[in-house]
Structure formats: C-alpha cells, structure tokens
C-alpha cells in the first residue's frame, strides 16, 4: 500500500508527540468534579463549617414536614454517579450508602423515599423550587453553602484524598515535584468519576485528581488505573441538606436531624458504613467531637 506523503508526515508527528508526552514531566493540572469542595480547595476557597444545634420549632403547621407526611413520600435528590455512595443497577433501581441512609431516614419518618438523579452542580446550586425535598448526597458543610442550605448533623465523615494515575508512577507526595494547590490549575469535569475514566482512557492533560477516599477505593476495586497518594488532605463533614430558600422546613430539618441522631446511637449508620466501605466505620467524628 502506498502511503501518501502528508499522511506519513501526520503519522510521524503524532508518534513524535506521543513520545514527548511519555517523557514529559507530570502536568501541573488536577482534575476535579464540577461544584465540589475539592475545586474550592484547589482555588484556596474551601471553608469547612459546622451546623449549629437544631432545635424543635414551635409550630409544625405549614412546614415541609406536613407536605411530606401527607404525600407519604420523601423526594430525595442524589447524583448517582458517585459509587459506592449512589449508583444505579441494570434493572434501574438505586443502590449505595447514601441511598440506604435516605431510605432509613424516610422509614423513620414513616414515609417512602423517592429518588431522582440530579447532576451535582444542579443540587449544590440551591433554589430547588420544590422539585425535591432533600439532598442525601454526602454534601460537605461549608460557609459558602450555608446561605443556600440548612444542614443536619453529619451522618458520616470522609477523607479527601489526592490520587494519581498508575502510568505517572507517582506513589507519594515526594514524587510530584511541585506543591498542590499552589502550583497547579484545576480541570473540571461533570463528575469525579469522569476524571478517573479519562485517565483510564489515556488522556494525558492530567495525572492527578482529588476526590473522596471512598470514591478512590471504589475505583481501585473496579480495577481503574489510579493510586491513592499520601495522607488525607482534609476531612469532610457530610450532611443531609434542605433548601434554605424553599418552603418552611425547620420542622422537617428537626425530624431528620433527630432520625440521624438515633441512627448514630443505635449503630445503624455504623453497620451501613461497614457494609458499603469495606468494613470501615466512617461515621465517627475524626475530630473527636
């Protein structure tokens, strides 16, 4: 077969470029999911916060709690691209730690959960317009989010970790050769799983990503070519969120907070954590309360 000169030139330059990439230094780019606290952290804008104590409201009338009770359904938004917290099975049903926690909360309220997938950046944008009632989506409590959401007490805590592609041969922070977040830029993809997938697909713009340690462990268990690096960057307090700008919900917030308190006390959350996170109990406050 006769290869035309331009085609040969393109082929040669492609080979050259790919050879270059293999010998080049680690790109100073870190991949994160859209609207995550990992992005805030990279931008030097991560302000973890705590939810103030939640007290029982004087009156329940007109509260979202009443609406939920009369509908018999608690509408839960979750981004189902976050295994093992939330994902779909081939028959269309919902599974994961967040799903089980939401189901348990609904049952303790005496109603059934109804799940709907929303992209994470839509959920964290707030102003839900009553399209769903609560988010059980491992949302980190931050100062920026407090005007938008009312948070319950945390239902578990995950460490945020740095991960690197196996092809980069980086196994510790010392191998990286630059400081994070000072020396790097962030690349945002729709969801954290996209970062892992793109590394697996051979994309070379980034070799590093930041996400929850649980997501990294899940991806490694699913034979994705990444490794966990170093110590946790920070701990995330993850809570159920309600829309601050929607209908009156102090009552529902109180009821859910109570349910989570009970689930901490009677070991339900610990059992679910050990079931989904490979025997690890992530429900104890790492800061020692």
């Amino acid at each position: 077969m006769r290869i035309k000169a331009p085609a040969a030139a393109i082929l040669a330059s492609l080979l050259f470029v790919s050879a270059c990439n293999q010998t080049a230094d680690l790109p100073k780019v870190v991949c994160v999911g859209a609207a995550t606290t990992y992005l805030d952290w990279l931008n030097g804008d991560f302000q973890p916060d705590v939810q103030d104590a939640i007290s029982e409201p004087a009156s329940m009338s007109g509260d979202l709690a009443e609406t939920v009770q009369s509908a018999g359904v608690l509408r839960v938004a979750t981004d189902s691209d976050y295994a093992p917290q939330s994902f779909r099975t081939p028959d269309g049903s919902w599974e994961g730690f967040d799903i089980d926690v939401a189901t348990e909360i609904a049952h303790r309220l005496g109603v059934e959960p109804e799940f709907q997938h929303q992209d994470w950046d839509i959920i964290t944008a707030g102003n839900w317009n009553s399209r769903w009632d609560i988010s059980v989506g491992s949302m980190t409590i931050t100062t920026d989010r407090k005007p938008l959401f009312a948070f319950t007490q945390p239902y578990y805590y995950t460490p945020a970790y740095l991960a690197a592609s196996t092809r980069s041969e980086v196994t510790s922070l010392d191998d990286i050769g630059f400081t994070i977040p000072d020396d790097v830029t962030a690349t945002q993809l729709p969801t954290d799983a996209n970062c892992i997938e793109q590394i697996a697909a051979g994309r070379t713009e980034f070799d590093l990503l930041i996400t929850s340690g649980t997501v990294i462990d899940g991806a490694i268990a699913a034979e994705q070519p990444i490794v966990k690096i170093g110590e946790p960057i920070y701990q995330e307090d993850l809570a159920v969120a309600l829309d601050q700008n929607g209908p009156e919900m102090a009552g529902l917030l109180y009821e859910i907070d109570q349910a989570i308190g009970e689930m901490h006390a009677d070991g339900t959350l610990t059992a679910l954590s050990e079931q989904w996170f490979d025997g690890a109990d992530l429900t104890q406050d790492p800061s020692g309360e």
Binding site: D81, F87, R88, Q116, E197, A219, A222, Q224
Partner: peptide, 18 residues
Amino acid sequence: AVEELLYRAQLVGRQNFR
C-alpha cells in the same frame, strides 16, 4: 435529568467508567 436515551447512557457510562 429526564431519563431518556442519552441521559441513561451518560449515567451508566460515568458510573462504570465505560
């Protein structure tokens, strides 16, 4: 987030890295 063809494909594609 309407569960039509592309939505379902993207969902399971991301979730399973496929």
